[in-house]
C-alpha cells in the first residue's frame, strides 16, 4: 500500500501498524510524536493503530528554533 510519510510517498506491506513504520522512520522514539490524517496518535496507541492506503502520516520531533 502507498501512503504519505512527512510529505513523501512511502510503500508499506498491507496490514502494517504504526509501530512498523516508526521502526524505520524514527528508530529512537523518544521525543517523537505522530499525527495520522491530522490527529495526534499517542505513543501507547501506536501498536494498535493500523495504517491504510492513502494515509497521511506526520512524524515530528524537537528541532532548534526560536
Amino acid at each position: 500500500m502507498r501512503l504519505s510519510v512527512n510529505g513523501r510517498p512511502h510503500e508499506l506491506p498491507e496490514g502494517t501498524a504504526l509501530t512498523g513504520l516508526l521502526e524505520t522512520v524514527a528508530p529512537d522514539p523518544r521525543g517523537v510524536a505522530v499525527a495520522l490524517n491530522g490527529s495526534v496518535v499517542r505513543a501507547a496507541e501506536w501498536p494498535a493503530t493500523p495504517l491504510r492506503e492513502g494515509d497521511l502520516v506526520e512524524v515530528v520531533t524537537a528541532h532548534q528554533g526560536g
Binding site: 512527512n6 512524524v59 524537537a62
Partner: peptide, 20 residues
C-alpha cells in the same frame, strides 16, 4: 529554551532534547 517541532526527516543528527 524554545524549540520548534519539525518532521524527523528534516532534522539533523544528534539529540537536541538529550542536550537540553
Amino acid at each position: 529554551v524554545t524549540v520548534s517541532v519539525r518532521r524527523t526527516s528534516d532534522t539533523g543528527t544528534g539529540s537536541l532534547l538529550a542536550t537540553l
